[in-house]
């Protein structure tokens, strides 16, 4: 009944439904195959004395078949559960396959090693979180892009942000910090200059000739402005110094002014000229 040689002849040269010929070789799909290769020694059908290892949900079983049970396909395979420990599993294999061909035992042990490694790897991977790869539905993407574009147009972002900022400004969130006071500062400077301009017209020519020292000049302009205030009598005092000064002081100053520039003169001789012009300015005012 069981003729291994005949079966092998049929399998190899006629037809076997487990055989798969691919470019790298001829393989076997039979789950009982030890090596997975289609040849005489590892064919589970053509060998009446055969053993293998199979995996049932992470538990390994040693499967053995002998020719004595060949007529009872129901319990053809004898199954032994292998312990989880690799060493102990090897011992069990040795015990059960004591008198079996050495080649088969060797192959089974190789398979056990491979499968243990695989089991370890599987458990590791199962613990690891993996990124889920999602599809990107083209239709939805396009629709979203379209709606986004329209929403952006409807948002009028720059305008809304500007409006929001202005609302905040009005609510006084930026009080005392803001740069508007800076503009006011420039305005006050402007007004000062405007008032000073009347006298500056002549002086400016002189400045082209002489002036490099910006700081000094600024001081002068301030002085001029001050004088102007006092002569035009009781304008609203904007300059910092003005509040202290009285009309009396001014007169005293105007007398003593010639002394003060004299002190400056010792430091920098240039200023002497400017002082003369200030006098000239005074003259002008007198004519006014």
């Amino acid at each position: 009944m069981q003729h291994d040689e005949v079966i092998w002849q049929v399998i190899r040269h006629k037809h076997c439904s487990f055989m798969s010929k691919i470019s790298t070789g001829i393989f076997c799909r039979n789950p009982y195959n030890v090596t997975g290769i289609c040849n005489r020694s590892s064919c589970p059908l053509a060998n009446s004395r055969y053993a293998t290892i199979r995996d049932h949900d992470g538990v390994f079983y040693l499967y053995m078949k002998t020719i004595e049970r060949a007529h009872k396909p129901n319990d053809l395979w004898e199954r032994v559960k292998l312990p989880r420990n690799y060493e102990k599993a090897l011992e069990v294999i040795d015990k059960h396959l004591m008198y079996w061909p050495k080649l088969l035992v060797h192959k089974i042990k190789q398979r056990l090693t491979k499968m243990t490694q695989m089991r370890i790897r599987m458990r590791k991977l199962a613990l690891k979180t993996r990124e889920k790869i999602m599809t990107t539905p083209r239709k939805e993407k396009k629709r979203e892009a379209r709606r986004e574009e329209k929403a952006e147009k409807a948002a009028v972002l720059d305008k809304t942000i500007e409006k929001e900022l202005l609302a905040r400004l009005e609510n006084g969130i930026y009080d005392g910090i803001y740069n508007l006071p800076f503009n006011k500062f420039i305005e006050t400077l402007d007004t000062d200059e405007l008032q000073a301009e009347d006298e500056n017209e002549e002086e400016s020519e002189v400045e082209y000739v002489e002036g490099n020292f910006e700081l000094e000049e600024e001081d002068d302009i301030e002085d001029m402005g001050m004088k102007n205030y006092h002569i035009s009598n009781d304008e609203v005092a904007d300059d910092d110094d003005d509040e202290e000064v009285n009309a009396v002081e001014v007169r005293r100053r105007s007398k003593s002014e010639k002394d003060e520039p004299g002190k400056r003169l010792k430091k920098k001789p240039r200023i002497h000229v400017e002082v003369e012009h200030e006098d000239g300015a005074e003259m002008q005012k007198a004519t006014f």
């Binding site: 709606r147 986004e148 329209k150 929403a151 952006e152 948002a155 942000i161 929001e164 900022l165």
Partner: peptide, 12 residues
């Protein structure tokens, strides 16, 4: 200023 503006469920 950093703006998050929501318009039609899109946050710009």
């Amino acid at each position: 200023v950093v703006t998050f503006h929501n318009q039609r469920d899109f946050i710009f």
